[in-house]
Design a protein around this nucleic acid. Sequence first.
DNA 1: CTGTTAGCGCTTTCAA
DNA 2: TTGAAAGCGCTAACAG
Lengths: 341, 341
Amino acid sequence: MSARAHRPTIKEVAQHAGVSPMTVSRTLSGGLNVKPDVQERVLAAVADLGYHRNENARSIRPGHSSGLIGVAITNIANPYYSTFALGVEEEAALTGRRILLGNTSEDADRENALVSDFLGRRVEGLIVVPASTDADHLAASQQQGVPVVQASRRIDGLDADTVVLADDDGAHRGASALIDAGHTRIGYLGNTLSIFTGRRRHAGFVRALEERGIPLDPALIAAGQQTVDQAREATRAMLRMKNPPTALFCANNRNAIGALKEINRQLGSGIKPVSEYPEIMSFDDFELAELSPVPISVIDHDPRELGRTAARLLLDRLDASGDGGEAREVELPVQLRMHLR
Amino acid sequence: MSARAHRPTIKEVAQHAGVSPMTVSRTLSGGLNVKPDVQERVLAAVADLGYHRNENARSIRPGHSSGLIGVAITNIANPYYSTFALGVEEEAALTGRRILLGNTSEDADRENALVSDFLGRRVEGLIVVPASTDADHLAASQQQGVPVVQASRRIDGLDADTVVLADDDGAHRGASALIDAGHTRIGYLGNTLSIFTGRRRHAGFVRALEERGIPLDPALIAAGQQTVDQAREATRAMLRMKNPPTALFCANNRNAIGALKEINRQLGSGIKPVSEYPEIMSFDDFELAELSPVPISVIDHDPRELGRTAARLLLDRLDASGDGGEAREVELPVQLRMHLR
DNA sequence: CTGTTAGCGCTTTCAA
DNA sequence: TTGAAAGCGCTAACAG
């Protein structure tokens, strides 16, 4: 537990090795034009003192960057986002970069503060799952040469690289499959339409119904649940209807899990047989979905790949050093995995 | 997508506001001894130029620190660890600090490299879920005045603040409860005994059996599964025994989920009724545990609180500025939630 | 091959 | 209340 409370500097290493700081610097940067035996002495001194080159000092020199990527996501604890973060981390680590991770809790103000803080720490770029609908802070970042990648969601009017899922297409295919299976009363559970993915998935869902001439019953639309508990409550309300839905379309894993929990709870009280509960279509796969008492189909995708792709878009731009051109937009495909009655 | 590729410095702000850099610095540090109207002018310039104080440059000045906490965990995608990371992030954010997050993938070399990198970036402290059994790199960090908190696991011979779960006690209580319920053939599924928690939970389990005079059948001990798939395979092997266990003790969520998946799969083929499958005791709660076809009891705890506690131990030490004294050891309690046949 | 000088962006110290 | 000088740790550019 003893603390020397002092971290050696390049000067001390130099002194220890009997050379100038420049020789230490050169040795640590690959050793060009440093005699092998001198290098050895330097490295020995480095090891002796436990020296670590100060990256912050380095980063203020012209031509040097921080090696930091700022990552702002809405909920670290949600497996979808943590897996996304893993993908970013892995890809960044391949180039020796590290991630500064911040949680926005779906709060635009916190996102603003986070981005501002990240810029102060001289991140090379930002990867953001926008909680905000406002482009200003991110546009400002780009104007200062700090590229932004928006992942999973897109902000209107932000001209930045984007990677999103095929939300509309996936939802459309999922809902269509339910209709194909004969469902006409399909409940919708999703997060608020003010969120990009919520809006797109809802749109795909609605489009499928319209195409097939199925009337849209407002009582069957519950958009606004951000948590599992809220989703459970919304499900409860829907199942209480005199003419309840025969299928539930869940626009994300929080809502699917909430629906499952509620159905499972009601099954426990044994009022109705399983066959009278709605089957489920979930946008997002999740662990243990297979234990569902009612058939559950999944609109599946890979959040890790989403993270990797976001990182690659950013790293591309960093290595292309300079403007790099047009904002790119990637839409990752989703895969429908059916499991119906 | 236009990039000015330039971030304003304090000098430019000063020029823009018609003052010296010092006045800008003072204004940004609270405005002591700066006339209000001058402050206004400075802040206007800051806003105009989109200036963000360079924290890296700041941090190299004596007396200033980076405001960075290095967090190294073994698997970001595991909800247990991501929730842990959330706890750390929240607590760090309360003091204006950010976290540098790295994934070790349970690899000691990667942990070493990560810690080294973190030290180079002048983190104020480290929070580590050790993948390594070697104390050297972390001890070295402490010697240089960078405190370390080890979370969830403890490394022998590392004199650092520690927060762990009541692994032994929890496992002991869980196993005892199974024995109380009449089980004598209890299968053990856990990760390798070379990992701290694996060892402790196994020890608590074994102790419970020994206390009750229940012989330890080596065929019922499977320690070494790190992934859900490995756990599934181990479960399969155990259920194939001619005299299979009547209960499974799962030492973490990966193993519990693997066991559940295997049991669920076998149920699908309808060879045996549910009642003939083992019930489960899981160290770690997890989402949708309640959907288990067999009764599942849980040794529950709060990974977010684990993260918060780890962060507080570290922040305490940072704010106590100086050695701060003895290494502290916190053992967070676990809670048994029974659900048996 | 090695060292000296200068300066990155910032703030502490001292002077005005 | 403000500014000038100096230096944090590091490394390009230049000298030797």
